[in-house]
Nucleic acid binder design. Structure first.
Lengths: 201, 201
DNA sequence: TTCAGGTAATGACATTTGTCATCCCCGTAT
DNA sequence: ATACGGGGATGACAAATGTCATTACCTGAA
């Protein structure tokens, strides 16, 4: 019997996956969690074989949960599912010891198979994302430039960003100018959209 | 037998819901669609009793699909499920003839029950959202102002928005100025964020 | 009929952004 | 040692954006 913990903040998909996995006779769903913090606690208590973690969750995201579990020395193996499977995210996930990586664009009945493989000791990385990850370039922006972009992601003005980062307004303008040039877009908002899409911020 | 069409751009939840509904012996899943445009076509061909529509989809969103189906005189009844159930969205949905409204924060096994009720001629609106909708204020913006906001939601320039709507650039600036004043924010991006949060666009 | 409100446009103006050249400081790889 | 890149800053300039007053047309309610 493979003992599985499921964490996803969206109750509908969490319960749907749990119901489907319960139909498999070699899988037992031992916990359903609505956020990352809860997942860490329950995983510690129950020591499941597999944690099926959604990436997008409040408190702690799926990768952070995997990171915590690994650092506590837990033997639990983590599978991460995500809505927007960007190569950058895959890199983060692998660095945190995640063994399975599956975008939500795959069918639900593949989940059981991935769980079995990972439980058996193998790794499963969605082939499409893996291919992307090899080709797609990482962010061309420097750390500081990303800071500026993050600080301005909600349409904040130059001065507000400057205040938030303890910089001069002109410096912020320079950074933004560099960002726009590197990303080849015309406005901050487009830069933010692009960076969010690519998983850089 | 209740004949159901499912449309959701996320394959995992789409296939999971389909699989669960297939377990019910009074429900038959006749189609699975990955976007709104496809849903309209298939619904036209198959004339299902119920369309289970995700709100967030490319091409046409769930409410737009319901709108189209109604305007073609189809007898199909629409149930909309959504990730972010804002009162504004519920209002839009009801105006488009949607009969069932269910946030994804509900459990998957409630879906079958809602489908049965709607198929039987009743309406089902998630009680929590319904309560919110009564309290929350509607958009203070005019139709045209919303058009402008929508046209500029990706950081488009004034000229681009103007071209898209066949307006003079100055007119667009006026509209935006009015929007910012009404919403009491300083930049377009903040206006877009606020309007999206409130479900106005 | 009058009036309010939505739509559409101009022109003038102040501010904010984006661009560019130039400077300084620092750490590190050559 | 020195050249290079990143972080931080200034000043100047052009373009885009936001503000305001004013005008005009149309529609529906009082």
């Amino acid at each position: 019997m493979i003992r599985v913990l499921i964490a996803d903040d969206e109750a509908m998909i969490r319960s749907a996956l749990a119901a489907l996995l319960r139909l498999e006779d070699d899988i037992e769903v031992v916990a359903e969690c609505a956020d990352g913090a809860q997942a860490v606690i329950m995983a510690g208590k129950l020591q499941p074989d597999i944690c099926l973690l959604d990436l997008e969750m409040p408190e702690l995201d799926g990768v952070q949960v995997a990171d915590r579990l690994r650092s506590t020395g837990s033997a639990t193996r983590c599978v991460v599912v995500t809505r927007h499977a960007r190569p950058g995210v895959l890199r983060r996930a692998l660095a945190s010891g995640v063994l399975g990586f599956l975008p939500k664009s795959r069918s639900a009945n593949e989940v059981a198979e991935v769980i079995r493989r990972v439980a058996a000791g193998a790794r499963y990385i969605d082939p499409e994302i893996a291919a992307d990850a090899l080709s797609e370039e990482r962010s061309p922006l420097t750390e500081r430039e990303l800071d500026v972009l993050r600080a301005g992601r909600r349409g904040e003005s130059t001065v507000q960003i400057a205040r938030a980062l303890n910089l001069a307004a002109g410096t912020v303008r320079n950074y933004i100018s560099a960002i726009l040039a590197k990303l080849n877009v015309a406005t901050r908002q487009q830069a933010v959209l692009l960076a969010e899409e690519r998983g850089w911020i």
